[in-house]
Design a protein around this nucleic acid. Structure first.
Length: 569
RNA sequence: CGGGGCGUAGCGCAGCCUGGUAGCGCACCUGCUUUGGGAGCAGGAUGUCGGAGGUUCAAAUCCUCUCGCCCCGACCA
């Protein structure tokens, strides 16, 4: 296609709103434009990339035995009330009413709609297993949309739903999707890792996230330095300590700690290490207040805490609540003599002796506190985030930490939705049985963004060939007849050979064309200039390496073919 | 929702504190020259200063309200 006929509004300067590389480059390369916070128009170039990613997803989903359908964006509140998610999903759900005042929402995901379909249409185990998917625009009224296509309020997602007659069969369906995801992200040219994950709002029994490794990722993952274990930090288990302190206990003493509230201030004042301090975090749940004891250098993991408490919502107590419960301002809470809250402790505490805690009194802490002797806890549990250097819970040495972008997520749902929505079928014995479900998502725009995060340089994007908007950027450097004729000839031949060619036919200076081409990021640039033609050559330049090969124009075709994967359109 | 910040030409910004003719760079239009890494010269067009109300002889500037956006924390593909 000719540049002069395409809307490719490249920007010379960085847009002020863009924070991350992918956001900045998508805007600068003229691929997306913002319509509202978290809502974007895909311009022709951006849409081509989206379509490429979608095509790869379709091929692999179909290959894995899934079938495509298309569900509506709008869905009625009744379905969501059946599963309880009309309330549970909260403000994240875009809601609206029709002219009859009936409640609707814009689908953030489609478990309800697909389960409604399947419960109506599937009667027999003979119709299972079944895996249906769609590529559809989703809506989530995110608290904070950001990073362009990375976290939008409207975004394109592939979502698949599997229905099986039993757990064993469901695990096979899950595995097929897991394998398909490996192929999809590999084909998209991404460096990624599948990690164990929390199931979040979707619910279910187990799940894996597919994480593209990138510094700008919003997720933190941990992985064994010498083994297969990898998990989201939210999920990563921390094994209980194996060595318990054998230090003789000393008597409890109260010491003044004027103005020292934070772990740093208290440890500096008392000249102890954070490992000798126990911090007391107060959380409020719908019912009560819970005190969480953590070693001074550890971080609370709220996902684990929610699971332990069996609640869906917790929040750090506000200062009024802290004062009411402890009798002291924030910064001096401690377990000794604490009456107004249940006390739970991370199991690292179990290994500690003679530690520092808050005294529930302004400007005072206890030193040489010991659990059991000075206070009792309701229980010990894994309540902290894993971190680099912790032992891997499943062997393979110590854990390392990396940042990741979640591009895909596979869930074993079990019977959560089939139960609440009564999706049943008759098994071979004629018994009414609940379908066992799985669901599987891929963020399409996020995948494209992640590809940019991993494949760019100071000049612009360097698309992995399978998802590049064009294979070759044809750059005639002047408007002379030999150059134009050669460009036309090469454009025709390459296009006929099945390659996707973007022909920069604008009357622009060479530098402008080079810079735009580098920004847009086609894997190859074919440069045609008067100088080269005088010597009978054109140049094929590899965007990634910068390598240039000079060839006579009629030799370009075979070289281009060798360089680009067959059938990669 | 809490905290911080920004809305001035298509884009990036200055002007605001201390009220008085709305500016700069890039982009855009015309002409000439130029032409292998974002050209030069000359000329030109472009603004309800986010919106509403108020104070004032006078408001981009001060006050009030409002809308939008960005950044930092709790959600997720």
């Amino acid at each position: 296609m000719r540049t002069s006929q395409l809307l490719i509004p490249t920007l010379r300067e960085d847009p002020g709103e863009a924070e991350t590389v992918s956001h900045r480059l998508l805007l600068r390369a003229g691929m997306i434009r913002k319509v509202a916070a978290g809502v974007y128009t895909y311009l022709p170039l951006g849409l081509r990339v989206i379509r490429k990613v979608e095509a790869i997803i379709r091929e692999e989903m179909n290959r894995a035995g899934a079938q495509e359908l298309l569900m509506p964006i709008a869905s009625p509140a009744e379905l969501w009330r059946e599963t309880g998610r009309w309330d549970f999903y909260g403000k994240e759900l875009f809601r609206f009413k029709d002219r009859h005042e009936r409640d609707f929402c814009l689908g953030p995901t489609h478990e309800e709609v697909i389960t409604d379909l399947i419960r109506r249409e599937v009667r027999s185990y003979r119709q299972l297993p079944l895996n249906c998917y769609q590529i559809q625009t989703k809506f989530r009224d995110e608290i904070r949309p950001r990073f362009g296509l990375m976290r939008g309020r409207e975004f394109i997602m592939k979502d698949a739903y599997s229905f099986d007659q039993d757990e064993a069969s469901a695990r096979l369906s899950y595995q097929k999707m897991y394998d398909a995801y490996q192929r999809i992200f590999t084909r998209c040219g991404l460096t990624f890792r599948a990690v164990e994950a929390d199931t979040g709002l979707i619910g279910g029994t187990s799940s894996h996230e597919f994480m593209v490794l990138a510094e700008t990722g919003e997720e933190t993952i941990v992985y064994a330095e010498a083994g297969p274990y990898a998990a989201n930090v939210e999920r990563a288990e921390v094994p209980p300590p194996t060595e318990v302190s054998t230090e003789p206990t000393r008597p409890l003493r109260k010491v003044p700690t004027p103005g020292a509230r934070t772990v740093e201030e208290v440890t500096a004042l008392l000249k102890v290490s954070p490992q000798q301090l126990v911090k007391t975090l107060l959380y409020t749940t719908a019912q009560d207040t819970v005190a969480v004891l953590l070693r001074g250098d550890h971080e609370a993991n709220e996902v684990k805490l929610k699971k332990l408490l069996g609640v869906t919502d917790i929040a750090l107590a506000d200062s009024a609540r802290v004062t009411a419960v402890t009798g002291a301002p924030v910064g001096f809470a401690g377990p000794v003599g604490l009456a107004g809250a249940r006390i739970v402790a991370d199991h690292a505490i179990k290994a500690m002796r003679n530690f520092v805690v808050g005294a529930n009194e302004v400007d005072a802490h206890y030193v040489d506190a010991n659990w059991e002797r000075d206070f009792t806890v309701a229980g010990f549990a894994d309540l902290r985030n894993a971190r680099a250097g912790d032992p891997s819970p499943q062997g393979g040495g110590l854990l390392r930490v990396a940042r990741g972008i979640e591009v895909g997520h596979v869930f074993m749902l079990g019977i959560k939705y089939s139960q609440s929505m009564k999706a049943t079928f008759l098994d071979p014995q004629g018994r009414e049985t609940l379908a066992v479900m799985g669901c599987y998502g891929i963020g399409v725009g996020r995948t494209a963004s992640a590809a940019i995060e991993q494949n760019h340089d100071a000049k612009g994007i360097i698309w992995p060939t399978p998802i590049a908007p064009f294979h070759i950027h044809l750059l005639p450097l002047s408007q002379t007849k030999p150059v134009t004729d050669t460009a036309q000839m090469l454009y025709d031949r390459l296009t006929q050979a099945g390659l996707e060619v973007l022909w920069d036919d604008r009357d622009e200076r060479a530098g402008v064309k080079f810079n735009d081409a580098d920004l847009i990021g086609a894997p190859f640039q074919l440069i045609i200039g008067d100088k080269g033609l005088a010597q009978g050559t054109v140049e094929l330049k590899h965007r990634k390496s910068g390598a240039v090969s000079k060839r006579p124009p009629d030799k370009v075709l075979e070289e281009a073919h060798a360089l680009l994967p067959q059938g990669s359109s």
